[in-house]
């Protein structure tokens, strides 16, 4: 029996309730799963929690593996990434720490222009923006995301220039009041001066 077939058989045995098969499967893949989880969250305890969730899911849903979609390693890798991103989304301090860690250690992580972290960063900022009044949000998005000038914003929003400047100023102050974001959404975006 080839290695792949052996591993697929392990999953079938797990699906049938074999704890022995699960033990073997765990020993084979724990390191691989942990390395991916740790690369994403950069936190030992969180990476272990992710491994816990992934392997528990394997035990409960071993029959969901489909050979047609790819290898067992690929199945586990995608599952681990997905659970790791869930963790980052749910745990804002962890996400902020990870983003800071990335921006402060580009030398340690060469080429780490990670798209999944950029989308989480956007998500974090969008969440923060949702918590401020609509007009302040609109003014900030137009100014910082769309690159519109204050005059252009004043014309579009049909408000005096002074009001637009106040909206942006109050909006930024409100963003900074969200403690979890103070370090990140600040002008330095978490980078040490």
């Amino acid at each position: 029996m080839s290695n792949d077939q052996e591993n697929i058989q392990l999953l079938k045995d797990i699906a049938a309730g074999s704890r022995q098969a699960f033990d073997i499967f765990y020993e084979k893949y724990i390191s691989f799963v942990y390395q991916i989880a740790f690369s994403i969250v950069h936190n030992h305890a969180e990476a272990e929690d992710i491994c816990h969730d992934v392997f528990l899911e394997v035990y409960q849903k071993a029959r969901q593996y489909s050979e047609e979609k790819g290898s067992i390693k690929a199945w586990l890798a995608v599952k681990t990434k997905s659970r790791s991103l869930d963790r980052l989304r749910k745990n804002k301090p962890l996400l902020i720490h990870r983003l800071e860690n990335l921006s402060g250690s580009k030398k340690m992580e060469p080429g780490a222009d990670l798209q999944f972290l950029h989308s989480l960063e956007k998500h974090l900022i969008v969440e923060a923006l949702k918590a401020i009044p609509i007009e302040q949000r609109e003014a900030i998005i137009r100014s910082y995301y769309n690159g519109e000038t204050h005059n252009e914003i004043a014309m579009t929003m049909k408000k005096p220039l002074g009001s637009v400047k106040s909206l942006i100023r109050y909006g930024l102050n409100n963003l900074r009041k969200q403690k979890a974001l103070m370090q990140w959404v600040g002008i330095d975006r978490g980078e040490k001066k």
Binding site: S31, Y34, Q35, I36, G111
Partner: peptide, 17 residues
């Protein structure tokens, strides 16, 4: 590119307990 990064990382000094 994300996966290249994730699969190339070597955190051997950190291991699950």
């Amino acid at each position: 590119s994300d996966w290249q990064f994730l699969l190339s990382q070597d955190h051997k000094k950190f291991q699950p307990s």
